[in-house]
Amino acid sequence: MAVPEQHESRRPSTGAVADVVLGLFMVAVFGWAFLEAADWSFKAALFPRIVTGLGFTVALLQVVQSLLRLARGRRAAADPTPATSPAGPIGPVPGAAPAEAVPQAAGTTSEDDVNEDDVEYVFQTAGARRWTEAVAWVTAFFVLLYVAGLFVTAPLFSFLYLRFAGRRTWVFCAIYAVVVGVVLYAAFELALGIPVPPGLFLD
């Protein structure tokens, strides 16, 4: 947990810009949803109006807050003396305090291995190339699943992914692919009879 925060406090602008953008997005979503509810009857619209009205207000507050933070971060960056602002907005918050305070008191032995496995850490440090690769593979998987169905996708994707992303041997990939295909077919088609994505051509 500690690493991403330090990382952020060194460059407060990245997180703050994202906060502004996401906040604006939420403002738009809630605003649209509130207007959408205008045509409904009182009964159907009561809860939606409360929810979207509150959501809109809070999201607006969030945008204002992160804009202020952004401005403060800029000022702090321009002013080289150690300012209080980086610690202020993202400083420790009481709710999370017990979890963070105790391991620090218990010693730093665990921090390295825990942080390296943190999902936040991986997401923040993976470069653009890795992100593109991962997203491309995932997209390919779901497109293939939609077009060709499960029983084609399972062995084919396993084979290609392990061969080219996992860099395994051809034989290993072939065995993995066959096993995955056979197990899935046996379990879902023969044993359980549960419908699986059929693909466009078998539907």
């Binding site: 939420m26 939606p48 929810v51 979207t52």
Partner: peptide, 30 residues
């Protein structure tokens, strides 16, 4: 850590829960 973000996410969740036919009158919502 962030109260406002938490409330926005909660409101967003409630909004997602609203999707569908409303239970009283069957109005299509979102």
């Amino acid at each position: 850590k962030h109260l406002l973000k938490g409330f926005i996410m909660a409101a967003f969740g409630l909004l997602v829960a609203l999707v569908g036919l409303d239970p009283q009158e069957g109005t299509q919502r979102y």
